[in-house]
């Protein structure tokens, strides 16, 4: 086969291989959607994070504004410290409330941000002052059963 024909075919092969990779990156994957770009990191302390995982979404008003960057345990306060990496184009007031929520009944857990009314905005390294832990279903059921039992025994006293 002539060398130019060969080169043409190989060039064609490389181009459609690259096109497949770009298709995977942009159409199948999440590249280009708020993944790159500037971010800033804030921390929040939670009593219980439930099943929250690293890379879980951070949402405000249902829109993804960042990702959970790191989860660790603070041995001094005995609470979980969750680092959130937020998109730099979204600024939140200092008194923003962070809540761990569940999407749907059995869906994955995410962090919901409820903006406050402070003038000053969150900066890198700031701590979220008000947090709300994940709702643990077992605890809730336990509490409910305990209340029912207490209700049942109340008239006897």
């Amino acid at each position: 086969m002539r060398r130019t024909t060969l080169d043409l075919w190989v060039g064609f092969f490389v181009i459609i291989g690259m096109a497949a990779l770009i298709f995977l990156a942009f159409k199948v994957g999440n590249l280009g959607a708020s993944n790159g770009g500037e971010t800033y990191v804030v921390n929040g302390q939670f009593d219980n994070i439930g099943g929250l995982k690293v890379r879980a979404p951070v949402k405000s008003a249902g829109v993804v504004v960042g990702r959970v960057k790191e989860i660790r345990f603070d041995p001094k306060t005995y609470r979980a410290v969750v680092s959130l990496s937020l998109d730099a184009s979204y600024q939140f007031p200092r008194d923003t409330i962070a809540t761990i929520l569940t999407s749907g009944l059995l869906g994955e857990q995410y962090v919901g941000l409820e903006p406050g009314g402070d003038e000053a905005m969150l900066q890198t390294g700031d701590a979220l002052q008000i947090t709300q832990s994940a709702v643990v279903l077992e605890k809730l059921i336990g509490q409910f059963m305990f209340d029912k039992a207490a209700e049942g025994s109340a008239p006897a006293n």
């Binding site: 092969f13 459609i16 497949a20 199948v28």
Partner: peptide, 15 residues
């Protein structure tokens, strides 16, 4: 050189 391109094509066609 060929193999990663072929695997990417395989995945793309599969999707």
């Amino acid at each position: 050189i060929s193999m990663p391109l072929l695997a990417a094509l395989f995945s793309a066609m599969g999707v």
